[in-house]
Design a protein around this nucleic acid. Sequence first.
DNA 1: GCACTACTGCGAACAGTGAGCGCAGTAGCG
DNA 2: CGCTACTGCGCTCACTGTTCGCAGTAGTGC
Lengths: 242, 242
Amino acid sequence: MDDAHTVVWNRPERAAKGPAPSRTRAEITAAAIAIADAEGIEALSMRRVAKELGTGTASLYRYLASKDDLLDLMLDAVVAEDGGLPAPTGDWRGDLRTLAHRSRATIHRHPWMASIAAGRPSLGPNSLDATEHALAALDPLGFDIDVMITVVDTLHAFVRGYAIGELAQQEAVRRSGVGIQQWMDAHAPYLDKVVKAGRHPLLARVIRDAELPHAADGAERGFQLGLERLLDGWEANLPIRP
Amino acid sequence: MDDAHTVVWNRPERAAKGPAPSRTRAEITAAAIAIADAEGIEALSMRRVAKELGTGTASLYRYLASKDDLLDLMLDAVVAEDGGLPAPTGDWRGDLRTLAHRSRATIHRHPWMASIAAGRPSLGPNSLDATEHALAALDPLGFDIDVMITVVDTLHAFVRGYAIGELAQQEAVRRSGVGIQQWMDAHAPYLDKVVKAGRHPLLARVIRDAELPHAADGAERGFQLGLERLLDGWEANLPIRP
DNA sequence: GCACTACTGCGAACAGTGAGCGCAGTAGCG
DNA sequence: CGCTACTGCGCTCACTGTTCGCAGTAGTGC
């Protein structure tokens, strides 16, 4: 199969000779995404994808060197799914805020992203576009290039990390196969014990008195709050304009 | 097996009757961590752990309901590994900074953490201790409890997200099984093409002119920089003290 | 027009996975 | 002293990612 030194992003879609392939990588990627969305990432197997497409499993390896490549393609496909990137408006805070919210929304739509993305550099064309776009929003501020990439990385880190935390419980419940209520019932005795033991007074206060964790839009509001403080931090350190 | 409603954190280590178990959950967890550290998370199988401990595979299921439980235990074990948490000093910035750096160091020591942690709420005793500790550092500031937990969540999100980004390439190289040089050689043609195409001028500037990405301690310095800005954001929004 | 070549689809197989069954053996309670 | 509830574990099941080899086909050079 193909050159081991060939990276998935650099593979020609069609060979020079021989019969035309009956499928495209995009088709395969879309099928895989549909499966992961509907049945969870652990249900995603090459056989399952092949069945979805009505083809033999081995055929997929004419398009992809490995399942790893498929995961790379899935990640990059999903980054671009909600239309083109909005043009920079000149309001850097607003632009970065928009990007952060879009990014969070994407992860929410595809919760499997978080687990897949760890250990996988985002070098796909759509990911590169997104990074370029974020840099462009910062361009007029006069930061030097090292700071600019740090801002983008930090924002990206916050969004990814926050979404992972948000989805952790939801995913655990889904994987367990029982309903949210049964999952909670299973965990309640342990958490009760922790709170009653009294060695976590502040955590107990969070559980008892905090509003955000119990509100339906608590995670959303926490995200907004954290994001604004992050932006505040950079705003307080803008370079002195000449 | 056992009660499906019993959560791993709440399972008694030893049964009331019958022969004493010949191993402990801690032993099994330690063996699993050693394997994941040395051979990567994808080499971690129940058979591999059993071999390491010199037992039968099925025996492990007397201690753990599933491999999922083992992963939970591994994550929580690793959180506590570098000694007890330092006592709050009264300097909230310093305390949070220390926690963030410790957390980052832990992920670097165990790169598999990042991929495992997604989709897994951190409810283990050591994770709860760490959260309580972070809340304690913030306690004197006079934030209300909702803001306090948001600060902790945001910090946690940043650290996790940043470390994931840092480790992405390193892990991809490791998984590919070739050296860093060969990996780079394989990707160079694609990245060259992207830069030459000219549609990512800022990204090109990062690759050409930025210092941080090429410096040995670049990731470390980027982390510090991002962390300070994050702390700045909260410092700029301290509640007015009565 | 025709061989040659480089491709495509894919059935079958391989080594390895998480997990469950059922059995032999054992510790402690009554 | 038995009865019971446990422990360790060989064997097995259904499934995984991936490869081999083979039949069939599209385009190139003559």
